[in-house]
Design a protein around this nucleic acid. Structure first.
Lengths: 354, 354
DNA sequence: CTGAAAGCGCTAACAT
DNA sequence: ATGTTAGCGCTTTCAG
């Protein structure tokens, strides 16, 4: 975190509070008060100062502010495998936007290849942010403790650490798995299959759990699980090929996410010459924008990104107002989006559930 | 940029240099020297300090550092319409990764709906970053001046401001347009069309210019230009429908980017029942990962993201070492990627040009 | 090679 | 309502 050499261009002259004070014939404190809410200052002088400041482009130095007030506007965002799922970048974009609108500044801490979130978390903690949002990654409980000691709240977005008392905002993955199970069974399918994503992730685990449990409840026991190493197009593609190379072919496939589903679908149609949904139904999870394209028109479970962002911001506000607010897991439900990749029964069709 | 209320959890006790000084029986200055390169300090004490610091997780306060040294590690990244093109998020992710590896910290400044980059740039400038990278957006020359006055270097990524002396790193859009033109003509097409993207962008303009100019050079004069308001799937979809509602249908279409091309392709195949490339050839620009999917297998021009990031980092290093380095425009060439959305002639096929 | 002292730009008591 | 003073945690002369 050490400052870099920064030879000034010409003679970079920064405008500081003293300049305004001299120019307007007031003290430096008064300048400060004009920029600090809930402080005693006459509206007249405040207006005068603000106006002059705007005209010359003065803004209080945030580093000095942080130093004196002992707090700052920075929220760290730790992200990993961002380009793997087209949904993460959007989450990142919206999150940082929401943060900015709430007066925070998002600082990005990408986890590079070969690194773990634990490697980059300290860098984020150096800025002593009130919050660090961990997006699509897991962090050791060790690191969690470090953060807590520094007074930083870790918020897991779209992931959670089971058993560990941390803040998290996730999609209701189990409910999604259940919804898909119901839908496929309703379509009349009895030989089902699941194509998995990254094994150790909570998303993968919970989607499978919800799916298989609901299947059992509905009396469907022929549910195959096909493992893959990772959430990816190619994973889905290869998994589908493997499954259909066997004799017992499924009638319907639920994929761990849309990307995997899209891959599976392309393998089924392109490589195996099967028709979707006539020969096999395919469903995904996330409802990424490509899933709505006519080329795939994928049935899926909508990932409630908007609400998750909103919940995250609410959480941040709550914690900010009450530092002793206890860790909670916010689980946001999504909804089924039926398109034409699953066999429609009785004229049932696009059924916009939300 | 004003600090937010931040009541401490329990009694948040930050570790500061004085603590180490007391504990190790040295002065604060010595602690500082242990973390500052090129300073006189005995290797022994330095090692002792660094070791102890690591054990208790001490890091110098970056705010204090910035205040005293008058420089910082922050690089602002101004981004807009990030979710419109799946390529931007990747650029963002890689850029911030590269920055971090170079010792910088990426701070995100998203341009929200209804805002312009000019609205958020001041927020970035408040942190007095040495650099602000402007991604996929344009900034008024007015704002450019403000930045320069504060000593901040603006670097346009994937955009440039014609005529204005600024730093920019762009893809060779004109070359790409030319390459596609050559390819389509080589395929034997004579009635060509271009589906545009966001009108005022340099990417859209340059791709069209290169394309149309090369067509002319090659003696092909029947080139239609179909405008759209924006780079999007739907733009491509609708534009294709409009074009094919007319009597003079093109034989080949070059789309301003892959997203537009994918939309056009789906309209052609799904809605109009045409075959690609048998009835019409379609080419895009960017080579986003979906373009390689079997479902579309789109011929395109590879966007040299990797090299552009590398060039950007080189630029940053140069400017950092020589603050009077004059503004330059770095233009990075990509290469043609032929897939099966364009009619192959003489057994010509996937021809990996890079 | 190390310590003491000054000061970066600002905010927050404390006076007035 | 405004000015004065004392730091925030660090780096950097300047002494030694």
């Amino acid at each position: 975190m050490k400052p870099r050499s920064n030879k000034s261009k010409r003679t970079r002259k920064r405008i500081v509070a003293k300049h305004l004070a001299d120019e307007l014939g007031v003290s430096i404190s008064t300048i400060s008060r004009a920029f600090t809410p809930d402080t005693r200052i006459s509206p007249k002088t405040k207006a005068k100062i603000l106006e002059y400041a705007a005209s010359i482009g003065y803004q209080p130095n945030p580093y000095a502010q942080s130093l004196t007030t002992q707090n700052n506007t920075i929220v760290g965002i730790v992200v990993s495998d961002i380009s793997n799922n087209p949904f993460y970048p959007e989450a990142l974009a919206r999150l940082s936007d929401a943060l900015r609108q709430a007066g925070y500044n998002a600082m990005l801490f990408p986890v590079s290849e070969g690194q773990t979130p634990d490697d980059v978390l300290p860098q984020a903690l150096a800025f002593e942010p009130e919050f660090v949002i961990v997006l699509a990654a897991t962090v050791s409980s060790q690191a969690t403790v470090f953060a807590a000691e520094g007074g930083t709240n870790l918020i897991f977005f779209s992931r959670y650490v089971p058993g560990s008392p941390t803040f998290s905002v996730t999609c209701d993955n189990a409910d999604g798995g259940r919804a898909i199970a119901e839908h496929l069974v309703e379509c009349g399918h009895t030989r089902l299959a699941y194509i998995a994503g990254t094994p150790k992730t909570s998303t993968n685990r919970d989607r499978w759990t919800g799916f298989s449990e609901r299947c059992t409840e509905l009396g469907v026991t022929d549910v195959h699980k096909e493992e893959t190493g990772i959430f990816s197009y190619d994973s889905g593609y290869q998994a589908a090929l493997r499954m259909f190379a066997r004799s017992a072919r499924p009638e319907a496939i639920f994929c761990a996410n849309d990307i995997v589903a899209l891959g599976a679908m392309d393998a089924l149609r392109g490589e195996l010459g099967l028709k979707v949904p006539d020969d096999v139904s395919v469903a995904g999870f996330d409802n990424i924008f490509m899933s709505g394209w006519p080329s795939h028109s994928l049935t899926t479970y909508n990932y409630p990104l908007e609400q998750m962002i909103a919940q995250t911001m609410m959480l941040i506000e709550r914690i900010s107002n009450d530092p002793d607010y206890d860790p909670i897991s916010v689980v946001v439900p999504g909804h089924l989006v039926v398109r034409s990749s699953t066999r429609a029964r009785n004229g049932q069709d696009e059924h916009p559930a939300g």
